[in-house]
Design a protein around this nucleic acid. Structure first.
Lengths: 341, 341
DNA sequence: GTGAAAGCGCTAACAT
DNA sequence: ATGTTAGCGCTTTCAC
């Protein structure tokens, strides 16, 4: 227990060379004879030597660590971090995550400066309410943001295409024969919510679906909002045969409302969500939804960050990834009695 | 963009004092006149100065950062990390998380040495299959483990009391009038699974429940295992009126099996799980289950780690936290037709 | 091919 | 109350 790790100086001493030679050997740099190098490597290994990235950073400014700022208890966090971590590792970087507290209480400046002193670059996955964005501008290391909510970050960023995802959802319902489709919006302050709604509007026009404005109800991306909005839809003189909720949480709320009204999903009403949270496929029936490619988004973020770290220019400041429709049991052909058709 | 953060030397120069004086002022150490201190702090603030924890570590061996090793995509991770993070912050520490890859591919040695060079102490939340434990023994910084699975870590650790939790579950069912209770075990390699089973056995004996050995079926902590085990139970000549599954995933599997058999939860069979995963309260009916106090476990881990960091002795090497029964809709009074009684 | 010197940003220990 | 020296572990630069 508690034995200090070996230092370069110790290794070089045992090997009978200078620290520099040892450093060169260990970092695979030229200027060391094959034999010397081999000896040094063997000794270093025996002594369990591992470079101290901090000392390295102090000296060279690099640690080969990338930092992630994220609220870990957020539904998207796990998959994004997974994508980031594995991609980083493949590129020879390690990843360290800083989890923002739920209450926005951590001084943004502190977090960023902490991270930039440890890492070579930062990927920020930000709660949309945060003012961290401003602080990021002053960072000494490159920053890439991943945005699951607003779709309009001013920073080099990775987003998914909410509009395209909305299209996917509505088209799926239309193909099942639905033409009276209710829509539950998200928090309209977020551009993702607006994009999803716009996709609906455009689809309604292009596919000549029922244009009744009452079919658009306002949710807030929360379960309760979905529940209330669905109840409004169900109370319409002519209720919709399908509902597209702007996110899965709203969709769950909607399904609850539908059940409480004595109706069945998907027999009486089809429901589509957006996000594919883990819960989605565990529901009864499992939820048809639009999935953001979270792991891919994480990977893309790393792939944008690495060139920046090396001081290279970025081909484009924004990577937009397409969403994917995941068809499950909550949608069925209009009038069909079985699952889906 | 990209402006290097201010250094202590720069601040002290502007303030017209030596670096030491500035250092003392900024670190709230004695030996600086009130006025000088105030000036320095103001200037530091204006210049946006923040200590470089790496340099600090190099010099003092401390960073006031604690590290967490965890698989972030694991169900318990989020809550544990939340508890760790907030407690650490309250104590004036920051938290950085290293996420273990799913495939056990990260060389344990590297991870630990990386972390110990950046942090003052490490909290390890380990996948039970890992050999990280061995490596932790050689760490240069104190290590505390949080164990949601095995209940028997050789390190200073925080665990929850599986035996007590099992008692809670069975007693609840017994109080509802059930005396023929089926049990679905977990992966018996894990002591948590063994403790939960033992709690059942002891309860059966003490509460004079039906001792039929066929009522104990083997699961594996996975949904599929729960499904299969439940089918065995349902096939018994005299099937149980209640099932206690060793974790929520198994319980979900069991509920699916029950539904497929044309029976209803809780009217025909009550089901209790263990863990209180987020899904549990979203099920239909929502699952009655035993909850591990994850955030508290995180907090306890920090509270164990901090004294160790300061070189103090620990009152006890293991903190055992009680679990809590969360009664929801999946359990009902035997014979009662309504929800629960 | 190898080594000595200097410095990254900071602080403990020892002056003054 | 303040400053000076030395050194944490490493690498860059320049000399040999």
């Amino acid at each position: 227990m508690k034995k200090r790790p070996a230092t370069l100086a110790e290794v070089s001493k045992v090997a009978g060379v200078s620290r520099m030679t040892a450093s060169r050997a260990i970092n695979n740099q030229p200027g060391v004879s094959a034999k010397t190098r081999e000896d040094i490597l063997r000794i270093a290994d025996e002594m369990g030597y591992v470079v101290n990235p901090l000392a390295q950073k102090l000296s060279t400014g690099r640690t080969r660590i990338i930092g992630v700022v994220v609220q870990l208890h957020t539904p998207f966090a796990a998959d994004l971090v997974l994508g980031i971590g594995s991609t980083a590792r493949n590129a020879g970087y390690e990843m360290l995550a800083y989890s923002l507290p739920a209450d926005d209480s951590a001084p943004p400046g502190k977090v960023v400066s902490l991270l930039q002193q440890i890492t070579d670059g930062v990927i920020a996955i930000l709660p949309y309410t945060s003012e961290y964005l401003d602080t990021l501008a002053g960072a000494a290391v490159p920053v890439v943001t991943v945005d699951t909510q607003t779709d309009d970050s001013p920073y080099p960023s990775v987003i998914s295409d909410s509009y395209q995802g909305g299209l996917l959802a509505v088209r799926h319902l239309a193909e099942l024969g639905h033409h009276r489709i209710g829509f539950i919006t998200g928090n309209m302050r977020l551009s993702s919510a607006r994009a999803r709604l716009q996709a609906c509007r455009d689809s309604v026009a292009q596919m000549s679906l029922d244009p009744d404005p009452w079919l658009v109800t306002e949710g807030n991306f929360a379960q309760r909002g979905g529940f209330d909005a669905a109840n409004q839809l169900l109370a319409l003189p002519q209720r919709p045969t399908a509902i597209f909720a702007a996110n899965d949480l709203s969709a769950l709320g909607a399904m609850a409302a539908i059940r409480e009204a004595g109706l069945q999903v998907p027999q009486d009403i089809s429901v589509v969500g957006f996000d594919d949270i883990p819960l989605a496929h565990q529901m009864h029936p499992p939820l048809t939804t639009v999935r953001q490619p979270l792991q891919e988004m994480g990977r893309s973020a790393v792939n944008m960050l690495l060139p920046l770290i090396l001081g290279l220019d970025l081909p484009s400041r924004q990577t937009v990834l397409p969403n994917e429709l995941v068809v499950r049991g909550s949608t069925a052909r209009l009038g069909g009695s079985g699952r889906r058709g």
